[in-house]
């Protein structure tokens, strides 16, 4: 039955592609969150009229973030090949894709974190300051807990962006569902492969969004 309906789908290839997508998403999301969160906090704190207002530092960080965000991911993937090789020892496969994914998504996530932190009522920061809190205590005790729903929503959007970025990984032999869709579905005219991979990507994105929304609701107290 499946054989006749989907003659070109190689289930082992498909399984491998799913596996690759998951491992690209998992690793790059992990590093993006770990690097992007502090960057976002720093952007927020050094911003105008904020706790550690530093116009020069903010201007510099903001510029770098904007530059990285304006480079199309395909270009980033290629430009970064030497750096990627330096970090992971290869510019090929999943390991060759994770560094560019992280570099592409971290500035994006950091901006979203900055925005989420700005949504925190200034009065709460003021009240915490009035209690004699250090900047560190304000960040960990008040800002991050208050902005948690916003940060989780930002992480969800970032994860979905990473899924779409990872579809371009085929360029460096990264594998994954997107790559399968391009190589087999598009270049070999295997429409059935295209349909199956797109459906799987759709399910993945839906699942990410639903999981993210659940977390946001769970941590929202407003």
């Amino acid at each position: 039955m499946l054989e006749t309906l989907l003659p070109n789908v190689d289930w082992i290839d498909l399984w491998q592609a799913c596996h690759d997508t998951f491992s690209m998403l998992g690793w790059s999301l992990l590093f993006t969150l770990v690097l992007g969160l502090p960057l976002g906090v720093l952007l927020f704190l050094t911003g105008k009229r904020q706790l550690l207002s530093q116009p020069v530092v903010y201007g510099l960080l903001s510029f770098v973030v904007n530059v990285l965000r304006s480079v199309p991911f395909v270009i980033l993937l290629i430009v970064m090949i030497p750096l990627t090789t330096l970090i992971t020892g290869t510019s090929f496969g999943v390991a060759g894709v994770v560094p560019p994914l992280v570099v592409g998504a971290t500035p994006f996530f950091a901006r979203l974190v900055e925005t989420a932190l700005r949504e925190v009522d200034r009065g709460i920061i003021e009240a915490t300051q009035a209690m004699g809190a250090t900047t560190r205590q304000i960040v960990f005790g008040a800002l991050l807990p208050e902005a948690l729903p916003g940060i989780l929503a930002a992480a969800t959007v970032t994860a979905i962006t990473l899924v779409s970025y990872s579809a371009m990984s085929g360029l460096v032999g990264g594998g994954g569902l997107g790559d399968l869709a391009v190589r087999n579905g598009y270049q070999r005219f295997q429409t059935d492969v295209m349909v199956v991979t797109v459906i799987l990507l759709l399910v993945l994105v839906q699942a990410l969004q639903m999981a993210g929304d659940r977390l946001v609701t769970h941590f929202s107290r407003k």
Partner: peptide, 16 residues
């Protein structure tokens, strides 16, 4: 500041 308490018009409680 620990010896000075403060209350606010909009309460400024931590919602979390």
């Amino acid at each position: 500041r620990r010896r000075i308490g403060m209350i606010f018009q909009h309460f400024n409680l931590l919602s979390s």
